[in-house]
Each structure stands twice: as C-alpha cells, then as structure tokens.
Amino acid sequence: MTLMQTLTEKAKNLAVRSPWIYRINAGSCNGCDVECATTALIPRYDVERLGCQYCGSPRHADIVLITGPLTARIKEDVLRVFAEIPDPKVTVAVGVCPISGGIFRESYAVNAEVDHYLPVDINVPGCPPRPQAIIEGVAQAIALWRQRI
C-alpha cells in the first residue's frame, strides 16, 4: 500500500465519525426549518451527539437536509447550490413538501416532488416532523453515508 492510499484510508476513518450537515430551504414555510434548528440548537434534542454539525457552506457538507416544495422561483438556485456540494453526499428530504408537495401538491408554483430533480436518499415525512423524527432520519443518513465514503 502506498503512502497516499494509507493517508486516504486514515482520513476516511476520521471523517466517518463527523459528517457535516447543510440545510437547503427550497421554499419552505419555515416550519421544518424551525424544527431542524431545534434539533441542532436545543440541548433537549441535540443532534450533535451523533457526531454531526451544521455548517454554513455547501462545499463543506456531507449530509444535506432539504425542506420545502421547491418553488418555481427558488428552483434554479437550489439546483446551483446542490451542485456545489461535493460527493459523496446523502440527501434527506425533511417534511412532506419535498417528498410529495404536501399541502401544495399540484400547485402551479411548486416543482414538487424534489426527487425528480435531486437524488434524495432518505424521506422524513411530517408537517413538520418532530425533532426526534428528524434525528431518526439523520441517523439513517449517517449509516448510509458511512457505506458511501
């Protein structure tokens, strides 16, 4: 094994412990965003126990949380930001809006379902999902991400 391979292996073993989470609001009503923030910031739910942390830049992200039904106005921006996220990544759709459109299903102003445009891996239905449900989804995403890296 060359030195490069050894270093890559070491870096992988370190990285699997701490995926970074990035949040994309694709035209959400802010309900799911509040729940996502609650999941991370309030000590009662504390998603950081799973080793993950919210990050501010899409270029640092490993797990992407998408909320909102992908409105017509925001679609291009979401696709552009999503393209900036490096592979391997795991995408989690939070709330019923990105999964099916939810209450906005079949509206002219939304491009739901998000998985027609982006490769979604995990769905967390709810309107909004409770923080524990988001943690459950993130836990599934971490398990998937460990296989991918």
Binding site: D121, I122, N123, V124, P125, G126, P129, Q140
Partner: peptide, 8 residues
C-alpha cells in the same frame, strides 16, 4: 406513531 423516516 411517528417513526416514519424511510429510504426513498
């Protein structure tokens, strides 16, 4: 029941 997170 709220355990509804699932693979796509």
């Amino acid at each position: 029941d709220w355990h509804m997170a699932h693979a796509v």
